[in-house]
Simulated assay, not measured.
Amino acid sequence: MVKKLILIVIASILISIGINVFILPLHLLNGGVFGISLLLKYLLGFHLGLTIFCINFPIYLLAYKFDQTYFINGVMGLMISSIIIDLLFPLNGIIHLPIFISASIGGLFIGCGVGIMLRNHTSPGGVDLLSLLMAKWYSINPGMFILAVDACIIIFGLLIIKDLHLLYSLLTITIVGIVVSIFTSFKTVEFYV
């Protein structure tokens, strides 16, 4: 349990750096539940926090019903990553890079963090938790599942917002998906703390 907590904290720090340092300052659209919630806010004026909770709720119920270990690990991952993302929010804007480089590095950090979590059967919640369940039921690589869902969210966002700036979000989620796929592909590799 201590090893899992340490890995969740390390993964959460990586995710937080990716989001706060490289993604948020450029107003890129993220995938997953956060991306869906942002789109609903833009379209219908929904409150972001409440929308994130409402979308996550059925995913967590599904995890609780079918695999309580994933549910508990998902709750831990969501709580720790949410706290660390907020704690590291002051990093927002400390580095100024061209958008292509920032989107790429942000995707690398987020992908490593999510990959470490998924490798250890936990997640920061939302689509990542759903990808764990899908991998268990259908032998789908979680990284490819995340990439497919996130790509749909970004493309839908592009159609709604009509801002070509969001094309860089596709770069970010592609890198996240590839890195997560690499982390979750090798069954024999273990992380030691």
Score class of each variant (00 low, 15 high):
residue 83 I to G: 01
residue 137 W to C: 14
residue 86 D to E: 11
residue 14 L to A: 04
residue 41 K to I: 04
residue 176 V to F: 00
residue 173 I to A: 05
residue 27 H to A: 14
residue 155 I to N: 01
residue 58 P to Y: 02
residue 124 P to S: 13
residue 105 I to L: 10
residue 136 K to P: 09
residue 30 N to T: 15
residue 59 I to G: 02
residue 19 I to P: 01
residue 169 S to D: 05
residue 172 T to I: 10
residue 57 F to I: 11
residue 170 L to Y: 09
residue 2 V to P: 00
residue 3 K to N: 04
residue 190 E to F: 11
residue 83 I to A: 06
residue 157 G to C: 08
residue 84 I to M: 08
residue 135 A to S: 14
residue 85 I to A: 02
residue 90 P to E: 00
residue 184 T to H: 03
residue 109 F to Q: 06
residue 105 I to W: 00
residue 62 L to N: 05
residue 190 E to V: 09
residue 159 L to F: 14
residue 61 L to I: 12
residue 82 S to G: 08
residue 30 N to R: 15
residue 159 L to W: 13
residue 6 I to C: 06
residue 161 I to Y: 13
residue 69 T to V: 13
residue 128 D to C: 04
residue 93 G to S: 12
residue 136 K to R: 15
residue 148 A to Y: 11
residue 159 L to M: 13
residue 172 T to D: 04
residue 113 G to D: 09
residue 46 F to Y: 14
residue 66 F to M: 02
residue 129 L to D: 03
residue 146 I to A: 04
residue 91 L to G: 00
residue 111 G to E: 02
residue 3 K to Y: 00
residue 178 I to A: 10
residue 126 G to E: 01
residue 66 F to S: 03
residue 27 H to W: 12
residue 131 S to F: 01
residue 95 I to D: 13
residue 161 I to R: 08
residue 163 D to V: 07
residue 160 I to S: 11
residue 119 R to F: 05
residue 26 L to M: 10
residue 162 K to G: 06
residue 11 A to E: 06
residue 46 F to P: 11
residue 32 G to I: 12
residue 119 R to E: 02
residue 141 N to C: 03
residue 130 L to P: 04
residue 185 S to Q: 12
residue 64 Y to E: 02
residue 186 F to A: 07
residue 166 L to C: 04
residue 176 V to C: 05
residue 9 V to M: 08
residue 45 G to P: 02
residue 72 I to H: 07
residue 42 Y to K: 15
residue 38 L to F: 14
residue 154 I to V: 08
residue 137 W to L: 15
residue 151 A to Y: 12
residue 98 P to K: 10
residue 142 P to F: 06
residue 30 N to M: 15
residue 185 S to F: 02
residue 184 T to Y: 07
residue 130 L to W: 07
residue 137 W to Q: 15
residue 15 I to M: 09
residue 171 L to P: 04
residue 106 G to L: 03
residue 93 G to W: 07
residue 51 T to I: 08
residue 38 L to D: 03
residue 139 S to N: 13
residue 121 H to N: 12
residue 152 C to G: 15
residue 69 T to W: 07
residue 185 S to Y: 10
